[in-house]
């Protein structure tokens, strides 16, 4: 079906979109299930019912700023941050959950923003690398990465730092071995691992509030 739909902005898009919506949300649903079942079911969904190409409204607190947004259901949290909010500190390495470059905090927990839909985060509090420093004052983990040369090309670094902060907050930075295990979700192609571990140990042992 999507192959027949011209992309947004192209002639014919809206018409194709309307046809798609009719077919997907009404006709097929009604054809496959008794009408009453579908209606009963639909009323027990909350207001978040978004058709395929229809934009859905969404509220997010990103780095302390409240946003009212509108996204297509298939937009990942990562794409929303980078392309709509222009917070390009969060990186796209693999887009499949395999590298950790896209790590952000959602309600305080570190997650891979490439493997979650933005709509699924409605009402949540997101912290990205841009939200870690306080004004001009770098976060202790950012300072430690600089001090210990915790990077080379820097592409994995925002994800490493977000993960490292969470690693300490979770209580998983008690030894070198534990740090390595709990930081394994962040791949560094430049191989800055020993320096990353040293940076985390310094922050942890320094007892600063992270």
């Amino acid at each position: 079906m999507e192959h027949e739909t011209p992309p947004a902005g192209c002639p014919g898009h809206d018409e194709a979109r309307r046809t798609f919506l009719k077919q997907s949300s009404l006709l097929t649903a009604l054809a496959l299930a008794p009408g009453a079942v579908v209606r009963a079911a639909e009323t027990e969904f909350d207001e978040k019912v978004a058709a395929a190409f229809e934009k859905v409204s969404l509220k997010l607190d990103v780095n302390g700023v409240k946003h009212k947004l509108s996204v297509e259901p298939r937009t990942t949290l990562l794409d929303l941050l980078r392309e709509q909010l222009h917070l390009t500190g969060t990186k796209k390495g693999c887009d499949y959950g395999q590298c950790g470059a896209c790590t952000v905090h959602v309600d305080g927990k570190r997650v891979n923003s490439c493997l979650t839909l933005a709509v699924m985060q409605d009402g949540k509090k997101i912290t990205t690398i841009e939200g870690l420093a306080e004004g001009d004052k770098l976060h202790p983990m950012q300072e430690a990465f600089i001090k210990h040369d915790g990077f080379q090309c820097g592409y994995c670094t925002p994800g490493q730092i977000m993960s490292a902060v969470a690693c300490i907050r979770e209580g998983h930075a008690d030894s070198e071995g534990e740090i390595k295990e709990y930081m394994s979700g962040n791949i560094c192609r430049c191989g800055a691992y020993p320096n990353i571990v040293a940076a985390i140990q310094e922050v942890k042992n320094g007892g600063q509030k992270v």
Partner: peptide, 23 residues
């Protein structure tokens, strides 16, 4: 990703009925 419709269930029954009625 292919485009899709997104619904959020607040009752288990709604989720089950919707899934059962739409392969």
């Amino acid at each position: 990703m292919n485009p899709f419709q997104y619904v959020r269930a607040t009752k288990a029954k709604a989720a089950i009925d919707a899934r059962a009625g739409d392969a």
